[in-house]
């Protein structure tokens, strides 16, 4: 089986709008990543690497992951071939020293097919507390097991996205009142002078008239011919 490199464009996550102007908080977060390469009901997690987000506001991250050992590569290939899940555990340490643990899973075959190109989505709440760390693989379709050559399963190319909580919408009363004001003013000023041309103004009356005339003139000669 030839493994085909699907090199489609992934428009992922780049749509992140920047709310940096509204954000009142900032801080750094370190995430210790662990992964489970054997599909067990109670998996054992081994170290995968560390991610340090220096500034939550800017979303800049330093990623430090060691390449997979050959044994781990085999395990991962096995996981992908059997259509199992690749699970990660992220231990997040915030500025104040508090720790939170998150779980996430992706289909191992999707991770293998993307050649270990994964994305880490770090969601934070309105105060800058981490509420979720999810691993995703950018793809347009899922797979049901895949065999990928071992040399492609070595280095993780992880991108980290810090996803802020958007400020919610507020009822826009000001512009609505302005709009009403404008309408009222326009009314007070009286009718706006209509400076369209005669045709533009009355085309709806002219067009049917013309059509009626054309139709009647077209039918008349026929009638005359018929009577002859």
């Amino acid at each position: 089986m030839i493994y085909c490199l699907s090199a489609f464009l992934v428009l992922l996550l780049s749509v992140q709008k920047s709310y940096s102007g509204n954000i009142e908080y900032d801080g750094s977060v370190t995430i210790r990543l662990q992964h489970a390469l054997v599909a067990l009901e109670d998996p054992t997690f081994t170290e995968r690497g560390n991610v340090t987000i220096q500034s939550l506001r800017l979303g800049q991250a330093t990623i430090n992951q060691k390449p997979l050992s050959s044994e781990e590569q085999l395990q991962l290939r096995d996981l992908a071939a059997k259509n199992n899940f690749y699970q990660i555990k992220s231990i997040v340490t915030a500025n104040d020293g508090s720790q939170k643990t998150f779980l996430s899973a992706v289909k191992a075959c999707m991770l293998a097919e993307s050649e270990l190109d994964d994305r880490l989505s770090v969601s934070i709440d309105y105060m800058g507390r981490v509420i979720a760390v999810a691993l995703i693989v950018a793809s347009k379709s899922t797979c049901e097991g895949a065999v990928v050559p071992l040399e492609k399963l070595k280095h993780f190319t992880t991108s980290v996205y810090v996803r802020h909580t958007e400020p919610g919408p507020i009822p826009d009363t000001a512009s609505y009142i302005q709009k009403l004001e404008r309408e009222r003013e326009a009314k007070e000023k009286g009718e706006v002078k209509d400076n369209r041309s005669f045709l533009a103004k009355y085309w709806m009356y002219i067009v049917p008239l013309v059509i009626v005339m054309v139709v009647s003139s077209a039918t008349n000669p026929d009638a005359q011919q018929g009577s002859q």
Partner: peptide, 19 residues
């Protein structure tokens, strides 16, 4: 705060807050 979460992957698709 209102979140939209994917129930299969646990990915937060949308998060918003009203102070």
């Amino acid at each position: 705060s209102v979140y939209l979460i994917d129930g299969v992957t646990g990915l937060i698709l949308y998060a918003t807050s009203h102070k």
